[in-house]
Design a binder for these strands. Structure first.
Lengths: 216, 216, 216, 216
DNA sequence: TATGAATGAGAATTCATTCAT
DNA sequence: TATGAATGAATTCTCATTCAT
């Protein structure tokens, strides 16, 4: 049964979806590598192996393409955050795992950092125009609030810790090191991306965050 | 008294220097606002109130102009760092002042952040090509080492604190908040730049840093 | 009879080919008139009645456009050389006809001379980069060899005549007169391009060449 | 005695002359290398080791500079031609020597060839504007006439030889080979400038010219 | 859905030339 | 005589975008 009645159309839709996705990935890489201003529609088409005209067909123009890429990047990280399951862990362990997750995600998704930089260079107008912006909010803030609360309750954490501030700090400690890796390396004359350097950074960040929240 | 013989030359030299400086400032603003890829030589000339050709006369091309701007930005921050005089302060106070200084400098020089982002987008090739790159190294690392050492000695600080890691963390806590201010604000639906928000951030950062280094 | 399914594509291909050809001709004229350095891409587009961008679309840049023009110029003269059919003629007649052909071709294709001059000014790098350079070799050298051989055999020609040297000499006699026509005219104060002067030159050249090869 | 009364001025004049000459040589090399359209005033100044403004001071503009260079080039070759002293030689020897001289001069002064090509590309307007154009006429035409006449008289040369045609032919045989050396070499896949190739060419040219004029 | 051809507005860079001293 | 600073008008080349099919 069920030979679908409009196979051609379905085929096409699948193709369409696939094409859109291919473009999105190609665009993400191009934007990440060159920034919004430096990205080239030609190169995106080439990377995607598709005709340039098709990009306009699906995404209207460069700006909206960037917006789509940005939203997708947020959707991707949120999806991984969902997997974290911090709530059943001991507060200290949960925090430590969050620091590790953030670090590893940035490390494995360097494009995320440059995309955010581009978005901020343009004052995040690509997000403001997105009605879905608020949906991109991290559920981690709430989770973090609960972790802090539990730590507070069991006497291990200090009081007065703002989840948003803590979230921003955790992100910032990884972000700056990785995003500014090139200038830092050039100026310090020292490769910050060796396995040893990376592991030292991770330890340091955990100590900073836990040193801050832990009592005594 | 005849017309003095040298002023002619001096005038000229001053003019050349002044022109170069004017261009440098105009370029810094343009690059900061639009990134390297988005910056326009035309606009830089216009901002500087000078002929576009003159930019090429002094700086060869866009790339080298960016390099010059970047080096100047580092020289500027290093100069302000020199004024800090942290060594005569109590270790804890010195650290707190460094956090404040970093925060304020980034706040007052938002162009510094975007310039660094641009430089990193291009993998800092503008610094690597600069023979002076190493000279742009912050003297704060050494200072920080001494502060940590003194804190350790007087029993107020914990041991095993790496000055470079600490420096990067202090910078990162401010940097991320300010550089990503737009995306963060859009996503949290909340203005992070109100006086209140800013003061809260500064307090939080001091607590994080001191919470980490202070004993007990 | 429905609209045939392929013409669309054919139309398109024809258009592309036609555009490329139109550009090539316009470029040839512009390069011939102003040299490589003096040619203007704008004027080429104007001459072709096509968008300037299209030139870059098809030919990459000015250098490669010049290379394409040069190759086409060689292809054109070679094609006419094919029509010559010298082999069935008496050796003396064949040589005379070759001198006439060379003279007339240069006369009717003055652009060929200036294109070659431009190519040589740039040390023929446009040919060296062309893999097809060797294919542009004149088949006349071989033909000339056979003519000389036949003349030798029937006792009318002297021995020891190198086909390549002879070819170069035949070309040189016409080339110099026509290519340097303007300076020669200015210096001798005499118009070298009147019908009478032209016919005298042609006679002279035939006499020189035949005086050289003919026995007795 | 006789310390000149205005030494400063004389000094200056000598300097002025020297500067003008330096510029002329630098310009000649630049024009020869890049053609009129491709030559750069900047590079000429650099080659001359003098300020660009000075070129304008002495030569008004690029066009007039080219004109000056061209006239100088003619003056140079005419001067060498003067040294030839062909009139006391046997007609055949005189002719042979003229072919050799032409060949060697072009060989040693490749810039002369490209300068002429540039001049002709621009339809010799730089000569027409020169009132001295006629003075650049080669005295060799007259000399050649006398040689031919003497050859005719002693029965060694054929009759009806036009000195101008012969002069042009002698020049053309060398000129084409040397000026088009690069394209010829590329197309024949063979280096035409080896000592052997050069000596063969010279022999060939002598044979052509003498084969033409000599009786029987 | 997909594509090759075509374009106008602009962008970096170049160039001959002039200014001011 | 000599020069460094400055400029306006090109000039090559680029780019996002649209046409036509």
């Amino acid at each position: 049964m069920s030979t679908p009645p409009t196979p051609v159309t379905e085929e096409r839709l699948r193709d369409a979806d696939r094409s859109q996705n291919t473009i999105l990935i190609a665009a993400r890489d191009e934007f990440a590598e060159h920034g919004l201003g430096g990205a080239r529609m030609d190169r995106i088409a080439e990377r995607a192996g598709l005709n340039k005209r098709l990009i306009y067909y699906y995404f209207e123009d460069k700006e909206r393409l960037f917006q789509a890429v940005l939203e997708q990047a947020y959707r991707d990280i949120r999806e991984e955050e969902q997997q974290l399951n911090l709530l059943h862990l001991k507060p200290e362990t949960a925090l430590r795992r969050l620091v590790e997750f953030t670090w590893n995600y940035y490390l494995e998704h360097p494009e995320f950092l440059t995309l955010l930089n581009s978005a901020n260079l343009h004052r995040a107008r690509h997000l403001e125009q997105s009605e879905r912006a608020r949906q991109l909010n991290s559920p981690l803030i709430a989770t973090l609030g609960e972790i802090i609360e539990r730590g507070r309750a069991d006497g291990s954490f200090r009081g007065g810790v703002d989840p948003l501030q803590l979230y921003v700090s955790i992100a910032g400690l990884s972000y700056f090191y990785l995003s500014n890796n090139h200038t830092l390396s050039a100026i310090f004359g020292r490769d910050l991306m060796t396995p040893k350097a990376r592991s030292e950074r991770l330890s340091h960040m955990c100590e900073v965050i836990l040193g801050y929240v832990l009592m005594s």
